[in-house]
Amino acid sequence: MKSFVISVAAVGCIATAAFAADIEPTAVSYEDGAVSQSLSGQPGDAANGRLIVGDKGQGNCVACHQVSDLADVPFQGEIGPMLDGAGDRWTEAELRGIVSNAKIMFEDSMMPAFYKTEGFIRPGNAYTGKAADDTFGPLLSAQQIEDVVAYLTTLKD
């Protein structure tokens, strides 16, 4: 009986580890622009998402969007829609799709795809003026996307 319990526990740990693996940017499944499955297999951290949205070195969402909750962040943009009420306007799956690659839902969007690694015309290597190398990755990690989505869902009217 003891070995059965250990075997079941081991299978449970392996299944949890497999479930928690990140979905690669090229394997994300969009349905009408929405992404229903978590990209990281882990819940998002809204507090960290708030930091990413307001950090000009990470998500830099405030370069184009205004967020009243981030009033302490200067020079917020007016190109994209105000993010106040984003949690009421869009579902979690829609927000995940928009942050991952807004162009799938909004074809003419100027918003960068934060979880994309292919299909670019001329990607660069950061701000070096050189072409991208083999280390070209998404702008945000799967967990960072989940954190941003968790924060955006808290923004209610």
Rank of each mutant, 00 (worst) to 15 (best):
A17F: 07
A18T: 11
F19G: 07
A20C: 12
A21P: 13
A21L: 14
D22A: 03
I23C: 12
E24F: 08
E24Y: 13
E24L: 07
P25H: 05
P25M: 02
P25E: 02
P25T: 00
P25V: 00
V28H: 14
V28W: 12
V28C: 10
S29N: 09
S29K: 12
S29T: 15
S29M: 11
Y30E: 10
E31H: 04
D32F: 01
G33E: 06
G33F: 12
G33P: 00
V35D: 04
S36P: 04
Q37I: 12
Q37V: 15
Q37S: 13
S38F: 14
S38M: 10
L39K: 15
L39C: 07
L39P: 15
G44V: 02
G44L: 07
G44M: 04
G44F: 02
D45S: 05
A46Y: 09
A47M: 08
A47P: 14
A47K: 09
A47Y: 09
G49K: 05
G49R: 02
R50D: 00
I52F: 00
V53Y: 00
G54T: 01
G54R: 03
D55E: 07
G57N: 13
G57W: 10
G57F: 13
Q58D: 10
G59W: 03
V62A: 04
V62W: 01
V62Q: 06
A63R: 12
Q66K: 09
V67C: 08
S68K: 06
S68Y: 15
D69C: 11
D69Q: 07
L70T: 03
P74H: 09
P74I: 06
F75E: 14
Q76T: 01
Q76Y: 06
I79D: 08
G80P: 08
G80W: 03
D84M: 00
G85L: 11
